[in-house]
Design a protein around this nucleic acid. Structure first.
Lengths: 203, 203, 203, 203
DNA sequence: GATGAATGAGTATTCATTCAT
DNA sequence: CATGAATGAATACTCATTCAT
């Protein structure tokens, strides 16, 4: 299920050090190679035995984070059997990721502009499409589950269906963004709104 | 309607020069003060007569762009009288903004990570909230229009209503992002999906 | 008579600073950009307003030194009217250059390997040939002077004649190199030997 | 006849690896310890079992090359019995050395500035004098041979005689340097000029 | 106000050397 | 003896900012 390759011990040490620094609130632009080395507990030179350049550390850490994140979300979904349970599992994962400064992905993504991200991912741009298609497949499976439960008819327009899930999810992200310190109530409301919208959209 | 203050002649010359550079495909990180000065046709020292620092040029250009963008969208909406016309006006504005490398806002936003953006907007973070509340108000007016036309019942849950618009819009943005070179057909489909979803969500 | 272009004030300040550092016994490889800047009394950044890179400073200083040196030798030769006087003027110039740690050229040349020198002179390799042909012309004029004085017959074989001057000169350089602290006597002997050899070779 | 000490197997492997790298056109400054180790087919650490430092490798390789070169020239001279044959043997050796990128010595010498060379030879500066005196002795023997053949009178001024040989040789080197791709004819002319000059100088 | 030459703090990267295995 | 992963000192170069004109 992991899409990217396996990692050497030291590579992980270094990438995790970078993520800890980001978790501490530092910007990518602020982080120096010496900071990463120190945080990782290795010499500065060692970085360059495993990564071609500072940028390379960033790029590969983004990929590692996406992998880890998706892996986490899917594990959580798979533990639920109902459509509703799976949807809330995703929403809850997203919420946690946004709440947790230490959450792998958001640290990276919120530190990159999209133009910059494209450059960082560079040659590995195809990875993006592989992620997107893996996600799409998962979404359509989920739609199937909902249809099986009789919550809405089986889909006939794949693109519309996918788009409905995307809309509900991103609407939730937007709502979540607008909360400074989300209360349980506000959170439940936002999740409920997303779920309601999804069902209406698919009926 | 412009939320930010008025600008001096030279300030505009400089901010527009920055936007031309971005339009040319350069990253914020790549752009040097000397580039901006040259593109603006002024001396490097002149920049510092109008802006406190390089970062300040960026920050104020972001705001200027948002202003310009929102102004444009609203003008376009106001030219339409029907609910459907207003909705498509917004979707079309977004599409254009994403298609047009020269579109003011996207140049800026796509060059900023959100963490960085927060820092840039800095003390002016309240501006963000003023924009958001202006937008919310406009959205609710729009919902009123739709209700008046009998397309859906008047809203009772303001947050849900706002969220539905946000979801439809962001779903469209996501769909639009997935098109490399959008065909007319694909575009119309994506807009149709967003509009359909919105109506279903509000009924 | 100067073969290379004219120099800006600051360029000269910098090149002369480099030469002072070399005169102080430092190797080219040891000299840092900051050393040059400090010795020149300018900021490190200023170096890069006048030279493209450290290597460029070296390369252009070599050329400047060669110019200066040749200019000096020729001035000295021109002050003498007799063949013998002109020859001794050259030998004496060479001696001085080798004795004087501050002599422009030797500082540079003795710090370069020939492979490195070729690279430094780089695109300006044609300059070398212009210098060599200027020298050859001067040598043949000198041969003419000697023939006019009846010291040896006019030359028929230009290459042999040029080669004889070169041999005598380089033999002197070799002899001079072998002296640690040259006494007046040893010096006069070496010059005498070179002059004798030259006359015999040309008769 | 070898002036420097004998070498261990691995030392030779390493020094020859360095020479191959130089032969390939790389500058001393460009060559890294890892390059030498790789070319020699040993681990980087092994270098330090046989040499104190990178500089030490260079220095001892210079000496090894000089030894090899002189040894080669003298062997060639000894195979000739006539004065003329011996002289041409030397000139031809020099020519070959300059023509052959792989010739041991020139690779080293043409990569060193003289200041640097002094440092490299370092404590072993006395070696230089031993070489020079061995050379001087050989030259005077050669002069004796020429006198025995009646080509010129026996020498009375040792220094002048030595100097004449040095001049002729260095004049040839200078001429040879000026040829880009030496033709047979040009080469024979240059050798003839050197030999002619030598005989004239000694008569 | 406008200019741009001068500045020097700041940083990614290299590579000789070591030493645990 | 042989190795090569780990190290960190060392350094060229950039570029935002200043200020004398």
């Amino acid at each position: 299920m992991m899409i990217s390759p396996s990692y050497k011990e030291k590579e992980l040490v270094i990438m995790r050090a970078l993520m800890r620094l980001l978790a501490r609130g530092q910007t990518l632009a602020e982080i120096k190679t010496s900071d990463i080395a120190q945080e990782a507990g290795v010499g500065k030179g060692t970085l360059y035995n495993y990564f071609a350049a500072k940028e390379d550390i960033f790029a590969r850490t983004v990929i590692y984070s996406i992998d880890t994140l998706l892996h986490g979300i899917w594990e959580r979904m798979d533990r639920e059997s109902s459509f509703r349970g799976k949807c809330y599992a995703v929403l809850f994962s997203i919420h946690e990721m946004m709440a947790n400064e230490h959450s792998d992905l958001n640290l990276i993504l919120f530190n990159l502009g999209s133009r910059e991200a494209k450059q960082l991912l560079g040659g590995e741009i195809s990875l993006i499409w592989r992620y997107l298609s893996a996600i799409r497949e998962k979404v359509l499976q989920l739609a199937q589950t909902g249809a099986d439960e009789g919550l809405f008819p089986p889909y006939t327009d794949e693109e519309y269906t996918y788009s409905a899930f995307a809309s509900a999810l991103m609407g939730f992200v937007h709502a979540r963004c607008r909360m400074d310190l989300p209360t349980d109530g506000a959170l439940r409301t936002a999740m409920g709104n997303a779920y309601t919208l999804l069902l209406k959209a698919l009926n």
